[in-house]
Amino acid sequence: MTNSSVQAASLVGFEDDLINHVRRHAELSEAAHRTPETWSYRNQFHILLALGRRFTPTPSSDHLMGMPDRLCYGNAARYALSHRDEGVVYAEGFALTHAGLDFYLPHAWVVRPDGTVLDPTWDDAPGRAYVGIPIADSSLWPIDGGGLLDDFDRTLPLLRDGFSRHALADLGRPLTAEGAA
């Protein structure tokens, strides 16, 4: 096996672990909360499992200076907005922190047109796995902070009504080989 093959296999393994983490949260949340049958999704984890994509981490570019820690939602939204002419979009979901930490964290980042991650918050190293939803509709990007899946006022309409037809970008790789979770 070549070094790049080993890295790709490791990435898929990390992504699979992250997806399993999201699945466990979906099951726990479903057991704890009843959602009306008419709603589009039972909880924010089901949104991720239904619409989520895998994204390839890449090192940050030299021109990207790390934005403030713990403000990833606003950082990613503002960066995507100011670089939208480059075809980037805001994405939100979960990321596995870089080597040595091994935490699954709710997180936001920017996705390039080729499906690779540009992370304006984590400038020291890319996360090892990113699973989330690429949002094409900039009116949904949380410029003021607070995530779409982490802020009750933003999450509730998505749970109830889902996303509009053109709100999502077709970037990244499917969660499973079949393209659905």
Rank of each mutant, 00 (worst) to 15 (best):
residue 108 A to H: 06
residue 65 M to V: 15
residue 139 S to C: 10
residue 33 H to F: 11
residue 100 G to R: 09
residue 55 F to K: 00
residue 84 R to S: 15
residue 32 A to H: 04
residue 52 G to P: 11
residue 92 E to A: 10
residue 71 L to T: 07
residue 31 A to V: 00
residue 104 Y to P: 07
residue 46 H to C: 06
residue 118 L to K: 06
residue 67 M to L: 14
residue 96 L to N: 06
residue 41 Y to R: 03
residue 102 D to P: 01
residue 124 D to H: 08
residue 58 T to N: 04
residue 48 L to C: 11
residue 53 R to Y: 07
residue 32 A to D: 08
residue 17 D to H: 08
residue 100 G to M: 08
residue 36 P to R: 00
residue 114 D to P: 09
residue 103 F to R: 10
residue 63 H to D: 13
residue 122 W to G: 00
residue 92 E to N: 06
residue 100 G to Y: 13
residue 76 A to K: 11
residue 44 Q to V: 11
residue 96 L to S: 04
residue 116 T to Y: 07
residue 31 A to C: 10
residue 130 Y to S: 12
residue 95 A to M: 05
residue 129 A to G: 13
residue 20 N to K: 05
residue 62 D to S: 10
residue 95 A to C: 12
residue 105 L to H: 13
residue 59 P to I: 03
residue 91 A to C: 12
residue 127 G to M: 02
residue 69 D to P: 12
residue 76 A to E: 10
residue 34 R to T: 08
residue 47 I to P: 03
residue 104 Y to V: 01
residue 44 Q to P: 10
residue 98 H to P: 00
residue 37 E to F: 07
residue 28 L to A: 14
residue 141 W to H: 06
residue 76 A to P: 12
residue 139 S to M: 06
residue 86 E to M: 00
residue 77 A to C: 09
residue 31 A to P: 09
residue 140 L to K: 15
residue 24 R to T: 07
residue 134 P to R: 02
residue 129 A to V: 01
residue 84 R to D: 12
residue 135 I to M: 06
residue 51 L to M: 11
residue 57 P to A: 03
residue 97 T to Q: 15
residue 24 R to P: 11
residue 77 A to T: 07
residue 129 A to H: 09
residue 69 D to T: 13
residue 66 G to S: 13
residue 103 F to G: 06
residue 21 H to F: 14
residue 137 D to H: 08
residue 59 P to C: 01
residue 78 R to H: 07
residue 38 T to D: 15
residue 115 G to I: 02
residue 47 I to F: 03
residue 34 R to L: 05
residue 74 G to P: 12
residue 44 Q to E: 15
residue 54 R to P: 15
residue 57 P to F: 05
residue 24 R to G: 09
residue 94 F to K: 02
residue 139 S to Q: 03
residue 77 A to L: 05
residue 86 E to D: 14
residue 38 T to P: 02
residue 32 A to R: 13
residue 54 R to M: 08
residue 82 S to Q: 14
residue 89 V to L: 03
residue 91 A to F: 09
residue 94 F to N: 04
residue 127 G to P: 15
residue 118 L to S: 10
residue 47 I to K: 04
residue 63 H to S: 12
residue 21 H to Q: 03
residue 62 D to W: 04
residue 58 T to V: 13
residue 30 E to K: 05
residue 133 I to G: 10
residue 76 A to N: 12
residue 135 I to Q: 06
residue 117 V to C: 08
residue 107 H to I: 01
residue 101 L to R: 15
residue 112 R to E: 08
residue 90 Y to F: 14
residue 134 P to V: 14
residue 138 S to C: 10
residue 65 M to W: 10
residue 112 R to F: 04
residue 84 R to I: 04
residue 43 N to G: 11
residue 121 T to C: 00
residue 53 R to Q: 13
residue 129 A to I: 02
residue 66 G to Y: 06
residue 70 R to T: 03
residue 51 L to F: 08
residue 57 P to G: 03
residue 53 R to P: 10
residue 41 Y to K: 02
residue 83 H to C: 01
residue 25 H to S: 11
residue 120 P to L: 02
residue 18 L to W: 07
residue 83 H to D: 07
residue 63 H to M: 01
residue 128 R to C: 03
residue 139 S to Y: 05
residue 108 A to M: 03
residue 84 R to F: 00
residue 25 H to L: 14
residue 63 H to P: 10
residue 20 N to D: 13
residue 115 G to K: 05
